[in-house]
């Protein structure tokens, strides 16, 4: 049984039919990526999973439990962490306070401390800047902070929304490297990206989303060779 099973989900913004029957599944320990153009419905899918948007139809099942009946904070407490698009760090709080916020719903002081040490090991840069307020960090550091904060919830499943946005190519590579190593340590990852090349290079499997539908799904390596993907998303002729 897959860890996360999204089946035939329809989500609306008012009258706009944003997701037109999305179905994806994520196995435990995988990195799965959703690629697609602007407005395809990638972010909407993530927001539906975490409960920030309520699907009108369809089911989202995490380890046998239907998430659509829960509120966002309850879903987060079930082990789903979200790294929002545009990073969404708390600009006025310091790095440490941002990370503490990630551990908001946890009470195991020991575990929290362990995770904090782990985040600082993964991102030594954050440790250097731990007393600085989030708004003064550079874009790359903010992305590190957003990922670190998601790790602080000690998630089973981590949802990442456009981690490459607005970052220099070198930084994008290092961020993706980090995502892969976090995955190796046992966190399942669902990754939404416009930078299809980078996403497919670390993912196990991928889905191509177009106008609220899944139009293609395959192993990441196969998608990279696919004619349509290469033309539309990898910019190759």
């Amino acid at each position: 049984m897959p860890m996360l099973e999204v089946s035939d989900v329809h989500t609306y913004y008012g009258n706009i039919h944003a997701l037109n029957g999305i179905s994806i599944s994520v196995e435990k320990g995988e990195i799965v990526t959703l690629i697609g153009g602007n407005g395809a419905g990638k972010t909407t899918t993530l927001r539906s999973i975490v409960g920030l948007l309520k699907p009108r139809q369809g089911h989202i099942v995490l380890d046998g439990e239907d998430l659509t009946q829960y509120k966002t904070h309850e879903i987060v407490n079930k082990g789903v962490a979200m790294v929002p698009e545009g990073r969404g760090i708390f600009a006025r709080l310091t790095v440490t306070e941002n990370l503490d916020m990630g551990a908001y719903s946890r009470k195991d002081q020991k575990g929290i401390q362990q995770d904090l040490d782990r985040v600082y090991t993964i991102f030594p840069r954050l440790k250097e800047r731990r007393t600085q307020v989030g708004g003064t960090l550079s874009g790359g550091e903010q992305q590190m902070l957003a990922i670190g904060r998601a790790l602080m919830t000690h998630p089973r499943l981590m949802l990442l929304d456009e981690p490459s946005m607005g970052l220099a190519p070198l930084l994008v590579e290092s961020i993706f490297e980090t995502i892969r190593s976090i995955n190796k340590e046992g966190t399942t990852v669902l990754l939404v990206e416009q930078n299809a090349l980078m996403a497919l290079s670390i993912a196990d499997r991928g889905y191509v989303v177009q106008t609220g539908r899944i139009v293609l799904q395959d192993k990441a390596a196969a998608l990279r060779k696919n004619e349509m993907v290469r033309k539309a998303y990898l910019g190759e002729e």
Partner: peptide
């Protein structure tokens, strides 16, 4: 740092 300062946040 030399990178692009934080985008929308």
């Amino acid at each position: 740092a030399g990178e692009t300062p934080g985008g929308k946040s």
